[in-house]
Design a protein around this nucleic acid. Structure first.
Length: 764
DNA sequence: GAATCTCTTGTTTTT
DNA sequence: CAAGAGATTC
């Protein structure tokens, strides 16, 4: 293949970036300016033209999806598989390093990754043991504190107690938490990064090995790196020392930094030019390249985005432009409530599809995941296929995590967190009292729960009933542990075996609700997920394996399939489960939409308090508000052809009807770019002009109210008389769905016929 | 010890 | 409206 294939599809600035000769290159790439293309072509250029071995290239992306996509595109361009190239997220790469160098990282060989839910449970347990009132000090805040410390590279021992007067307990909890994780072989997300950083600092031979290995490091979404990630990169790239010959190539957009709440710092973009060039010789000095031509959106969409983001201060300065025509005006729709909003969106989708548009070109975006619900409801009603990204993901579901805990405990008896989770799930007669005895014994003898139980039974320190139940549990886990028997089960067989023995399916199957049924299905699906994982494997693992034979430092690569799968479950959390390729509308949060593009975009719930979120509005400094605005900028720039912005006058939140004003971001868009479907009232000073009267409306959620006499018993059926708080008594004349929670058409005595979502109604 | 009921409380975004 | 904690009953 010749060079023209790499360079021809690029404009001048893109080409300049792809061919950059500088040791360190910063690409400031506006939304839709071909950022990913530049990265992909850069790597192709390095391999094809500069004869850099893929073995010497590391590419860091923000999500696992982006990593897979990047690998795919490069291999497509070069028409050859690049198996030994490292492509992954910071977390994924750090995980790989720690598996390979677990000894040097002072970890146990089969350490397990815990998610934030597991982390919170551990902290609750520690705080309970310490006798700290969780009313006064919410565990969530402690969790936030610890993660913030780790994100900034600080261990409990490195913090100055003088800074914590009156809050010493924070340090104490942090310290105990570190100890507990260390002892039981658990690693949280922030710990992955911190350990990997410490690996560089404390094991110079490991660092040296990778410094010799990598000649090119490329980082995507650089504006969203946090302190520890930045430090990790800086150390790896040689601390600015001229003798290292590592080239860094980072791509980012300060206007799209939306992870400040997770410790990301936009400043890194600015600091990069300074930090990564001190040691470089003059001719190799840093190069900054701006990509400002947008190839994605129409002129109107782009102008709106520019106008909104212009309200932020402290930008690096960048103005997107396009050669494209103005396109259509942006549509603003002001809905009565969230149901009306969803109906509008669905109606527009039907129009689009009628004109021959594809559903997969459409995205419904929102600020918070809970907002997907009314849209899902409306789409189901109209038979429009859709797919929801994010929210509660597959491996985060309670029943799936229970199953994973069985696997974890069977693989590692020292995993106290897993032990506690499942000792009485499903219920097997081991109550709180017994668990407390075990916990206390373990603490006194400095044992793992597993050992403590054995001793308690031997010494007959448990009641006969409890002892039998606990003994049964121990035998159960031992039976699940396939490694004991010397049999060679495949991973799928192991998981199926464990799942069967756990009786989790029967446990949930007994309950006859839709929710319980879904749990059984999820457990079923877990087997399929294992199969998929087994078939596809982890490309990054492949990369490590392939290169392992080439040198000593990476010899210790661990490939225990069960541990691999559990790590995969924690890190990927189940993105991209099934249905991936069906032609369907995409629903996702604005955060998950970063990096994607769609022909037709609906930006929904654009209301003051929701977007910008109310938490951001309380911030006096305004930094949070600016991040919300960047989020808005990200949302607007996802659209290629057409953008609809919707907001509702009233919205059900925590079961109440709340009034809402249009978002201030709407008024930041020049009126000339917008067509309003209903007049937007920009009067922010009063609620007067907004009505909460839904009675003109044919469809509405029944307000459950919550008082005891509203509660439904049994099934709602046609012909039944029901009583609704607002509309009075009526008779059900039509129904969709099943159970007490269903959509029903009711003829009310005074209010006429209405469709209602009745979850709770009094049956008369 | 388990199941059920009652009450409070809280909710952004994700590796 | 959900989930979680605490109290009560079986």
């Amino acid at each position: 293949m010749d060079i023209s294939q790499i360079l021809d599809p690029l404009n001048k600035a893109q080409r300049q970036a792809v061919c950059s000769e500088a040791q360190n290159t910063l690409v400031l790439a506006g939304a839709g300016s071909g950022k990913t293309r530049v990265l992909v072509h850069r790597i192709a250029w390095l391999v094809q033209v500069e004869n850099v071995s893929p073995y010497s290239i590391m590419a860091v992306t923000f999500t696992n999806k982006a990593a897979a996509e990047m690998r795919f595109r490069i291999e497509n361009l070069l028409k050859t598989p690049l198996r030994n190239m490292w492509v992954g997220t910071f977390h994924g790469l750090a995980h790989r390093l720690l598996r390979a160098h677990w000894k040097d990282a002072k970890l146990v060989e089969n350490f397990q990754i815990i998610d934030s839910d597991d982390q919170l449970r551990l902290l609750k347990r520690i705080m309970k043991e310490m006798g700290i009132d969780d009313k006064q000090h919410p565990p969530r805040e402690v969790q936030w504190f610890i993660n913030d410390c780790k994100d900034n590279g600080k261990r409990s021992q490195q913090l100055n107690p003088a800074d914590f007067r009156g809050r010493e307990f924070l340090l104490d909890i942090y310290y105990r938490y570190e100890e507990l994780c260390q002892r039981t072989g658990l690693v949280d997300f922030a710990e992955l990064l911190l350990r990997a950083h410490e690996l560089w600092l404390k094991q110079p031979h490991v660092l040296k090995h990778y410094q010799q290995r990598f000649s090119h490091i490329l980082v995507d979404e650089f504006q969203d790196t946090n302190t520890i990630q930045y430090a990790w990169l800086k150390v790896l790239s040689g601390n600015n020392l001229p003798q290292t010959n590592i080239h860094t190539f980072v791509v980012g957009d300060d206007d799209q930094s939306i992870y400040g709440w997770r410790g990301a710092k936009i400043e890194h973009i600015r600091e990069f030019c300074h930090d990564f060039n001190a040691g470089a010789s003059a001719e190799k000095a840093a190069e900054t390249i701006k990509l400002e031509q947008n190839y994605r959106s129409t002129g109107n969409i782009l102008q709106a985005a520019n106008a909104v983001i212009a309200n932020n201060t402290e930008r690096l300065g960048k103005e997107l432009w396009t050669e494209d025509s103005e396109g259509e005006l942006l549509q603003i729709y002001r809905a009565f409530n969230e149901i009306d909003e969803a109906a509008y969106v669905a109606g527009q989708i039907e129009k689009w599809v009628d004109k021959g548009g594809k559903r997969s070109d459409i995205a419904i975006l929102y600020r918070s995941n809970a907002q997907s619900q009314p849209h899902e409801y409306e789409l189901v009603k109209r038979g429009i296929p859709y797919r929801v990204y994010g929210g509660l993901r597959f491996y985060e579901r309670a029943e799936v995590k229970d199953a994973l805990a069985y696997m974890r405990l069977a693989a590692n008896y020292q995993d106290d967190a897993a032990f506690e989770r499942i000792i009485n799930t499903p219920a097997r007669g081991i109550g709180l009292r017994t668990v407390e005895i075990i916990r206390a014994a373990a603490k006194n003898n400095e044992q793992f729960l597993w050992q403590a139980v054995q001793e308690l039974i031997e010494n007959k320190q448990l009641s006969a009933r409890a002892a039998t139940a606990v003994q049964k549990f121990i035998y159960l886990i031992e039976e699940m542990d396939c490694s004991k028997k010397g049999d060679h089960f495949t991973l799928v067989e192991q998981v199926a075996h464990i799942l069967e023995l756990s009786q989790l399916k029967q446990f949930h199957g007994r309950e006859n609700t839709e929710r319980a049924q879904a749990k059984v299905e999820n457990l079923q699906e877990l087997i399929n997920a294992v199969k998929r994982f087994d078939d596809e494997g982890d490309p990054l693992l492949e990369a490590v394996k392939e290169s392992a034979e080439l040198n000593d430092a990476e010899q210790q690569v661990l490939t225990n399939p069960m541990s691999e799968f559990l790590a995969h479950a924690a890190l990927e959390a189940g993105e991209g489960q099934a249905d991936e390729w069906e032609e369907c509308v995409q629903l996702m949060s604005l955060h998950s939409a970063k990096g994607l593009e769609f022909e037709l975009v609906f930006l929904t719930g654009v209301e003051q308090g929701l977007f910008p979120h109310k938490n951001a509005l309380q911030d006096y400094v305004g930094g949070k508000l600016e991040e919300e605005r960047r989020l808005c900028y990200v949302g607007i720039t996802r659209a290629r052809q057409q953008l609809h912005l919707t907001h509702a006058e009233s919205r059900t939140m925590y079961g109440r009807n709340e009034m809402a004003l249009p978002s201030q971001f709407l008024s930041e868009i020049p009126a000339s770019l917008v067509s309003e479907v209903r007049a937007v009232n920009n009067n922010f000073s009063s609620f007067d002009s907004f009505s909460n009267n839904n009675s003109s409306f044919s469809s509405s959620y029944a307000s459950p109210g919550g008082s005891a006499d509203d509660r439904a018993e049994g099934e709602i059926s046609i012909g039944q008389r029901v009583k609704h708080k607002k509309f009075g008594e009526g008779i059900v004349i039509d129904k969709e769905g099943s159970g007490a929670r269903a959509r029903v058409q009711v003829n009310f005595d005074y209010e006429g016929t209405k469709w209602l979502m009745l979850s709770i109604a009094k049956l008369v």
